[in-house]
């Protein structure tokens, strides 16, 4: 198994006719992902064609979901319209909306998050690289790739990876794959201060997934999501966990690229989060190059074999 998505998951792409959405829809199709529908208002009835695949385009999410059975949407809609696109997924009662869009106003996300309370739809992101559940083919082909991550660096296996950052996720996944260690699912939750799914939400899913045997938790400065996850791990998670926090050298009060990566006080510095990780039994990677090795140390300490 895996979390959130499986190779059988049917996905639709909101913004499939934009340059960015189109490129990544193609890459997902190449990876073997079941991209079954596109949504671009005003282009319903047209098709998105790529190497023999003919993906129908709909005007609305609800039509696309009804006609194709898609349960997950990936959102490549520009920032001014992205909050609306997320709410359209909620209205269509999809299982999952993955918002890749960077630059959504914080107020829009505050309102979206409130509107999603009690809804069955889960949001991952925004400002995130997406989710990959690797497949069994060459270079993990045949998996489910939602978003913008490189699929080929993955390998099917038993390590769960959760991170805010895209390239740092790829770094961790690549290190694992290079060492012959596969992943169950890798999830990028995004770098914004208000997002749909937290580190803790993903950790709980990994903990409950029998196919995930170990976890890499990657965080950064700002907020307390990593601390919340670490404390829960200490109390509830028996699986080996390795962690890394980016931003030890970031000056206070400056946003480091991600809208949420800003030190606000003594509690959300890298040093403070690393101290909590250590206190909670998480094996801390000293540098990003050490993430896979840190997980191997954590696994060894718990007598878990990874491959």
């Amino acid at each position: 198994m895996s979390i959130l998505i499986t190779p059988e998951t049917k996905i639709l792409v909101q913004g499939i006719t934009g340059a960015f959405g189109a490129k990544h829809a193609q890459l997902s199709l190449d990876y073997g992902t079941r991209v079954v529908a596109g949504v671009t208002p005003g282009k319903g009835g047209q098709f998105f064609e790529h190497q023999g695949a003919k993906v129908p385009i709909f005007d609305t999410v609800i039509e696309a979901a009804k006609a194709t059975g898609a349960t997950v949407s990936v959102i490549f809609v520009p920032p001014p319209f992205a909050a609306d696109a997320i709410l359209e997924c909620v209205d269509a009662r999809l299982d999952l909306a993955v918002a890749i869009t960077e630059g959504i106003p914080i107020k829009d996300m505050v309102r979206v998050k409130r509107a999603m309370q009690g809804s069955p739809t889960r949001l991952v992101g925004p400002n995130c690289p997406g989710i990959v559940t690797p497949g069994t083919g060459k270079d993990s082909n045949g998996g489910c790739r939602i978003g913008i991550a490189p699929g080929y660096i993955h390998k099917k296996g038993h390590v769960g990876v959760v991170s805010r950052s895209g390239t740092l996720t790829y770094e961790a996944v690549f290190q694992l794959t290079t060492k012959g260690i596969g992943q169950s699912t890798s999830v990028g939750i995004g770098g914004d201060p208000v997002n749909g799914t937290s580190h803790l939400d993903v950790i709980k899913l990994f903990n409950a997934d029998p196919d995930t045997h170990a976890i890499i938790l990657i965080g950064e400065i700002g907020g307390n999501a990593e601390v919340e996850a670490a404390r829960w791990i200490k109390a509830n998670c028996k699986k080996p966990v390795a962690g890394f926090i980016a931003g030890a050298t970031a000056p206070a009060g400056r946003r480091m690229g991600h809208a949420g990566a800003i030190v606000g006080g003594a509690e959300d510095t890298a040093a403070a989060k690393i101290a909590v990780f250590q206190e909670c039994g998480i094996e801390v990677a000293a540098t990003p190059s050490d993430m896979a090795d840190a997980l191997l140390r954590a696994a060894k300490a718990r007598g878990v074999t990874l491959s």
């Binding site: 950052s165 390239t167 740092l168 980016a246 690229g257 990003p288 190059s289």
Partner: peptide, 12 residues
Amino acid sequence: NGAGLAMSTMDI
């Protein structure tokens, strides 16, 4: 490339 990697490059 990437904010997370950029931050950790400074750190390393």
